[in-house]
Simulated scan of single mutants.
Amino acid sequence: MTVPEDAKPGGRYFGIYFEPTSSIPTPLKSDKEAGTSTKSRLAGLVYVRVAGPITENASIIKFQTPSFIEYGPVKVTSEIINRGSYHITPKGQVVLYDWLGRKIDIKALEEANIFPDSSRIFTNDLGKQLMFGKFKVELTATYGETGQVLTASTSFFAFPVRIALVIILSIIIIMLLGMIIWKKMKGRQSKLEKKLEEEIHELEELKDKVSDNIPQTKK
């Protein structure tokens, strides 16, 4: 391989195909059938680095999550672009923190090549199904021969709305049932008090009648 003298330093990429010069015939079942042949082909991607100082320049152009989720895990989307002159393979991790700053989950960034003047999208799912409150997500990755660092962060809220509605409705139903039971008990108590007053009144009347029927003795 001969590299042109005016070639700029950096990466060059091309594919090579290999295939046999003769085809493999398929056996005929009868004299009247047409014959067929097949060819196999192998392909490979070749990286060539032209000697000289190269440029390593990458950045995170997208790092996002939904601003609100009802149930986890949360989907984190990261996009890294390579503006350098040689391909890079970022290595890093995505970390999920809760509102107290505690680490909830950690996922490694998929190791994949990013060629010059191109970008790659990475996705990670973090967290559990049931989450509550404000959460923070951080991406930290390194790339290149000198280990340059890429960082990004974002935040989102998680709240199980439907579960909360079920709990609130359950509390309301329990309170209503309690009020109904209390009113019934209060009504029964009022009836008992009224009945007791009537019986006391009847006893007083009976006492007066008995007192009137008892002859008084003269002294």
Results as ranks from 00 to 15, higher is better:
6 D>W: 04
173 I>F: 13
167 I>N: 08
68 F>H: 11
43 A>S: 11
27 P>M: 06
132 F>V: 13
181 I>P: 01
13 Y>S: 09
47 Y>A: 09
42 L>W: 07
177 L>Y: 03
207 K>Y: 04
134 K>R: 15
109 L>D: 05
172 I>D: 03
86 Y>P: 01
177 L>D: 00
81 I>V: 11
206 L>F: 00
111 E>A: 14
9 P>W: 06
87 H>T: 10
69 I>Q: 05
133 G>Y: 03
189 Q>L: 08
152 A>R: 01
164 A>Y: 05
62 K>G: 04
55 T>Y: 04
201 H>Q: 12
128 K>F: 12
152 A>H: 01
60 I>G: 05
113 N>S: 13
199 E>S: 09
147 G>R: 04
154 T>G: 05
60 I>Q: 06
144 G>M: 06
111 E>P: 01
218 K>R: 12
215 P>M: 10
130 L>K: 08
15 G>W: 12
189 Q>T: 12
36 T>K: 04
149 V>N: 08
2 T>Q: 08
217 T>N: 10
194 K>I: 03
174 I>A: 15
104 I>F: 00
41 R>P: 03
1 M>L: 11
65 T>W: 02
37 S>N: 10
131 M>L: 09
13 Y>G: 13
52 G>K: 04
160 P>R: 09
26 T>D: 11
36 T>C: 06
55 T>F: 06
32 K>Q: 11
197 E>H: 05
140 T>W: 00
3 V>N: 09
101 G>W: 07
105 D>M: 07
85 S>H: 06
19 E>F: 08
89 T>M: 15
71 Y>R: 15
101 G>D: 13
104 I>A: 00
11 G>Y: 08
213 N>A: 06
2 T>P: 04
22 S>C: 03
98 D>G: 03
204 E>H: 10
76 V>M: 12
15 G>E: 14
10 G>F: 00
109 L>R: 04
39 K>N: 13
130 L>R: 11
118 S>K: 14
99 W>H: 13
80 I>W: 00
157 F>Q: 11
151 T>R: 15
58 A>Y: 08
123 T>W: 04
171 I>R: 10
160 P>N: 15
169 L>W: 03
104 I>E: 00
121 I>N: 05
59 S>L: 14
116 P>W: 09
95 V>H: 03
103 K>L: 05
151 T>F: 03
199 E>N: 15
135 F>R: 05
21 T>H: 12
186 K>N: 10
212 D>I: 05
12 R>I: 14
71 Y>K: 15
171 I>S: 14
105 D>I: 08
38 T>L: 14
195 K>R: 14
206 L>E: 08
9 P>F: 07
179 M>D: 09
97 Y>N: 01
197 E>I: 03
7 A>G: 02
62 K>Y: 08
6 D>G: 05
